[in-house]
Structures are given as structure tokens and as C-alpha cells.
């Protein structure tokens, strides 16, 4: 007895329409979310590696200024390492011999900025991105040095919190 073999009929010239409505819905939601979270401030601050910023309820957008960052390992001025930090304290090699609050390399960099970018220096603004666990003693040295170099307007960069 011979059985007839079952075969699926395939139409070679058949076309099908893909329903993309649900995909468009998904993209619309994604687009709205991304547009909402798009940073539209006048100054873009890049997060610094190794720096966990404290949370604050402030609603002020960042302004332009000399960018300083303090992590558990180093103090940076515009991505350039100016002093090392050991055990949450500024390395003594970077401190002035006669004034232990004065960070000499940082002062020199800020002084250089006075001539390189006169317009920015005139505002006297410092944007400080410091790790949340850094003790105030270390920050005080930075504030002290910045004030000496003609940058007394300190702006503390924080993340948005409750």
C-alpha cells in the first residue's frame, strides 16, 4: 500500500505584512523617556571615575567654572592629577612646607588658569566634584587653596536626591 506524502503548499510569490504597531508604541515610550532625561543644562559635567557624589535636594543646574574633582586616591584639575590622597588625607608631598593647608600644585594650576582663561577666572567659580566619604579636612585644604588662587565661589556638585 502506498501512502500519499503530505506536503505543505508553498506559494513562491506570496508577500506578508509585518505588524509594527506594537514596536512603534514601544519606541514612542522609549523616546519620551529619553527626551525627558536628556540633559539640557548650559554646562555638561562628566562623572569622574571613583567619585561617588553626595545626594542633595538642590535644583540648580551646573554653571561653568574651574573643574576640580576629589576621589579617594587623587585630586584632579580638569582631568589632570595635581595631588595624591592617602588615607583620606592630602599627600604631604603636595602640601606647602610652611602651611599645611596649602596645596601647592593645585594653586599653580589655578594660577595658570588665571592667564589661560581670563574670562572664566574672573567669575572665581570652582565646580567641586568630591567623593561623599572624603573628610571635611581634605575639602577645607582645597577651599583654602582655591580662595588663595582667586577662586572663592565654590559650587558643590551633587546628584539629585530626596
Amino acid at each position: 500500500m502506498t501512502r500519499k506524502r503530505f506536503s505543505v503548499p508553498i506559494k513562491k510569490n506570496q508577500s506578508f505584512g509585518l505588524n509594527i504597531t506594537s514596536m512603534t508604541d514601544m519606541f514612542t515610550i522609549l523616546l519620551v523617556f529619553l527626551l525627558q532625561s536628556f540633559a539640557a543644562g548650559e554646562v555638561q559635567i562628566d562623572p569622574v571615575d571613583g567619585v561617588r557624589l553626595p545626594q542633595s535636594s538642590t535644583e540648580k543646574n551646573p554653571v561653568d567654572g574651574a573643574k576640580l574633582s576629589v576621589s579617594a586616591k587623587e585630586i584632579r584639575f580638569d582631568q589632570k592629577v595635581v595631588a595624591l590622597i592617602k588615607d583620606n588625607q592630602v599627600d604631604t608631598a603636595a602640601l606647602d612646607a610652611h602651611d599645611n593647608q596649602f596645596i601647592k600644585p593645585l594653586f599653580e594650576e589655578l594660577k595658570k588658569l588665571n592667564t589661560d582663561n581670563e574670562k572664566l577666572a574672573k567669575t572665581g567659580k570652582v565646580l567641586l566634584q568630591a567623593d561623599e566619604n572624603i573628610p571635611y579636612a581634605t575639602l577645607r585644604k582645597i577651599m583654602y587653596t582655591a580662595s588663595m588662587a582667586g577662586f572663592p565661589n565654590l559650587k558643590l556638585v551633587t546628584t539629585v536626591g530626596n
Binding site: A39, T58, K155, L156
Partner: peptide, 9 residues
């Protein structure tokens, strides 16, 4: 920017 940063002034 997924981490929104603000300043205190």
C-alpha cells in the same frame, strides 16, 4: 545623562 548632577550655590 542618566546620573543627573546639580550644584549647591
Amino acid at each position: 545623562a542618566f546620573v543627573q548632577m546639580m550644584i549647591i550655590e
